[in-house]
Amino acid sequence: MGRKTGEKIKNLCIFALPGCLIFGAVVILPFLYGFYLTLTDWDGVSKVKHLVGAANYMAAFSDTAFWSSMGLTLKYVVISVVLVNAVAFLLAYALTNGLKGQNFFRAGFFTPNLIGGVVLGFIWQFVFSRVLVNLGETTGWGLFSTSWLSDPDKAFWSLVVVTVWQLSGYMMLIYIAGFTGLSTDVLEAASIDGATGFQRMRRVILPLMVPSFVICLFFTLSRAFMVYDVNLTLTGGEPYGTTKLVAMYVYDKAFTSRNYGVGQAEALFLFAVVACISGVQIYLGKKKEVEA
């Protein structure tokens, strides 16, 4: 008995403990410590912290710039998620019909996802601030006469463009996997029963693709909410801080303004929003999957 217990503990220590300890030290411990930080006035340098109660949360609540950044992020997330998935779905549909060279196209559309957001942002900064402006000058198109990045509205849309450009190739792959998994029997049966292309899409393909939609929505939602790199290198939050999405706002609050307690409180608000959305989505996805 004693030997067996000893063996069990040994196995636990060898197999699970190293991984769990690292995970605990890097994810769990900081996450919990973060709650404590929100109750202090830590300035990032000194060893001394004072407990300040709920002051940081009050400050976060009344930080209008934070909430407008959150609002902007929501707008960005909704638009991006819809566009990314629409484009990805269409691409996947077009690239599963035995098109010539479809593997080549698939690989090409995915390429932006191999490259880090920092570099993608820089590439598009060049495109928006130089290439398109040049195009505007030579063609006389008003749309491109000035750099998109110097206008608050257009700078926002430039973020959306880059996001769609990047993520649609990724989501396309997941939709392709979904299309390839569709049973040809069911599709043929629908055609024989006289379903038109549109009916087939609406009544047969779309319901069967629900699992793929769930995966893609979850993926794009979480990616869009946490976007930082592209935001940093494409617009840098400019012009006049109008395109600062919430991840960047929290970063600046803590590390630039050295307002760590308030920054962490705002980060926890972001966590709450993301957690709610993920929860709702997983719930809806499970329900829908069963019905379909």
């Binding site: 890097v26 994810v27 900081p30 979480s222 919430v246 803590a254 962490q264 980060a267 993301v274 957690a275």
Partner: peptide, 11 residues
């Protein structure tokens, strides 16, 4: 589901 932003400051 924890965003990295909620961990980076205490980290």
């Amino acid at each position: 589901i924890i965003p990295f932003q909620a961990i980076m400051i205490p980290l």
